[in-house]
Design a protein around this nucleic acid. Structure first.
Length: 573
DNA sequence: GTAGGGTTAG
């Protein structure tokens, strides 16, 4: 027995007038389906549920059910959709690929990717659309590695990939900056002759190359495209500006036929990143349709350049100009407030979030956790965390960070163990950074600290970044193991990274170990700082000169490893 | 009227 309850009062009123109309003619599926396609959706759904309950099977069952699922899904009738799934199973329609695909669409849209995947696994014959749907589901929810792995599975299956298959996976390569795989996929696309005919594929390629730092390849793809749309232009402008070629980006921008809000927002972002706020303002005031993002980009710029006070002032300005505040506006300004440690302002934004109905959004809730814990209000942070309806990794990380920041290693470690029990979440590099940070600041046994580091590398396949090593170095140096810490730097190939040496030097000075500090500083520090400075100014000749001196003096040894090997580890193929 | 899958800003 299917039950359909439409909670909307307005639709009830509406249905009293039109129900009889549909009801009198809705004895057939044809009428219901055409009503679903046009208007009077609620009544059509009622009529359809009645028909199904009467045992009236539609002639073309899968078509009718696909329609039903699409409409009830779009209108947020989650319960009805789940019941329809039950109906599909009960009446043996699961082998209908189109029907299962549309069920997958519903689960994806209602953030139940796991259910979509389960359905996919149960399909006897998933087609290319089923595969694409799942791959894009993972990519769209930020689970890029899983998306990539699934794409590789598709490649090994009998199903032939099409244009749609490549777009989502290129987006994943872009976000993970795996240009070698992106380039492989590019050559596959060329081989299949899909490069020229499809604008979206071209757009994805431009974006992928741009995000992977290969601006020249992005330009090449752009120039060879037969047809270009606004997204193509936006992608090439962004590729240039992201790769420190703002001039070229602006040149493309001036050639562009119809710049839109995204284009202008890209430019604002580029100016803000080069801390040219005046140019950013100029664009904001001259652009045709500024939206929340346009303002948020400048707000983010202030926070990222550590101008938190300016950020809060700018936020006030947004408010007074009547800019629609969205979840990002709130989370960014909360970051600024957290840096300034002004609890009353944080509370104001919290109530602002409640009023706008944005407080349970993951970005806002995590920002609130972060703000409260940075202000030392751990109890408030905990309350936020445990009352969140859906907790993603960002929220967990924020809470672990909260404990870490307040020096509560016991709670941080306890929460980390709880995170490990979560079925659909996996700790990432940030989680371990927070965990290692708490280990380096508190009296956590060295064996445990090292255990976490090894767990990160071996169990979760996360490549240690220099920040992880810094925490490890600090933890070792706290115990006076300067030379072991030095070994860590060399072992992980951070010998050329000033940050690692600075961490060690800092640890030496904190431990008042003058002898060790002198040894570290005198031998290496100057070289590193100079090398980084030259690299920053792109004076590569000097960089290599310094590195040569370092090698000759036996100060450091360059660690060589295959780039492809590294990337393979990075995506856990 | 042919349903189910794709790209860009934070």
């Amino acid at each position: 027995m299917l039950r359909f309850v439409s909670h909307k009062v307005t639709s009830r009123v509406y249905s009293t007038t039109t129900r009889s109309h549909v009801g009198s003619t809705a004895s057939s599926w044809t009428t219901v389906v055409s009503a679903l396609a046009r208007s009077g959706v609620i009544d059509a759904l009622h009529a359809a549920v009645e028909l199904l309950n009467d045992g009236d099977k539609p002639d073309d069952a899968s078509s009718a059910l696909v329609h039903l699922l699409r409409v009830s899904g779009n209108h947020g009738y989650v319960s009805l959709c789940r019941q329809l799934h039950g109906y599909v199973v009960k009446h043996g329609f699961v082998s209908e690929t189109r029907l299962s695909n549309s069920l997958m669409r519903f689960y994806k849209k209602s953030d139940s990717l796991e259910d979509a995947h389960k359905l996919f696994d149960e399909m006897p014959e998933p087609d290319v659309i089923s595969w694409n749907s799942l791959v894009s589901g993972y990519v769209q929810s930020g689970r890029f590695k899983e998306g990539l792995c699934l794409f590789l599975d598709l490649h090994r299956s009998d199903v032939v990939p099409n244009e749609f298959s490549f777009t989502a996976v290129l987006a994943a390569c872009a976000r993970l900056k795996i240009s070698w795989l992106g380039a492989c996929i590019h050559s596959k696309i060329v081989k299949l002759g899909m490069e020229k005919g499809n604008v979206v594929v071209g757009n994805c390629l431009i974006d992928m190359y741009g995000k992977c730092g290969s601006m020249d390849d992005a330009v090449l793809v752009f120039r060879h495209m037969e047809e270009k749309d606004t997204v193509s232009w936006n992608a090439i402008v962004a590729s240039c500006s992201r790769n420190r070629k703002l001039e070229l980006g602006l040149w493309f921008f001036h050639q562009m036929p119809n710049p839109d809000t995204v284009t202008y927002n890209e430019l604002i972002d580029a100016f803000v990143k080069s801390e040219d706020f005046n140019s950013a303002f100029q664009i904001l005031s001259c652009m045709p349709n500024p939206n929340s993002s346009s303002w948020n980009t400048i707000l983010t710029g202030y926070v990222n350049s550590e101008q938190s006070r300016e950020a809060t002032l700018f936020f006030t300005k947004m408010h007074s100009y009547g800019v629609r505040l969205d979840e990002y506006s709130l989370s960014i300004v909360l970051a600024a407030i957290a840096a300034l440690v002004v609890v009353p302002w944080g509370r104001v934004i919290h109530s602002c979030g409640l009023k706008l109905g944005l407080d349970s959004r993951v970005v806002v809730a995590s920002a609130l956790i972060d703000m409260y814990s940075k202000c030392g209000m751990l109890k408030q942070a905990e309350l936020m965390f445990w009352t969140m309806p859906r907790k993603n990794l960002i929220a967990w990380n924020a809470m672990i960070y909260g404990y870490a920041r307040n020096g509560d290693s016991t709670e941080a470690i306890k929460l980390f163990s709880q995170l490990k029990q979560e079925r659909f979440l996996k700790p990432d590099g940030i989680t371990f950074l927070n965990l290692l940070a708490v280990c380096s600041h508190c009296e956590v046994p060295m064996e445990l600290t090292l255990g976490y580091f090894e767990m990160m590398v071996n169990e979760y396949g996360i490549k240690p970044r220099v920040e992880h090593c810094c925490s490890l170095i600090r933890a070792m140096a706290r115990r006076g193991d300067i030379w072991q810490a030095k070994k860590v730097i060399q072992e992980f190939g951070f010998g050329f990274d000033g940050v690692a040496w600075r961490a060690l030097l800092g640890a030496c000075s904190a431990g008042k170990d003058l002898k060790a500090a002198k040894a570290v500083a005198g031998k290496i520090y100057v070289y590193i700082v100079m090398s980084n400075l030259y690299a920053y100014h792109e004076i590569w000749r000097e960089v290599s000169q310094i590195r040569k001196i370092m090698r000759e003096k036996g100060v450091e040894k360059e660690v060589g490893s295959s780039w492809i090997q590294e990337q393979n580890v990075a995506i856990q193929l």
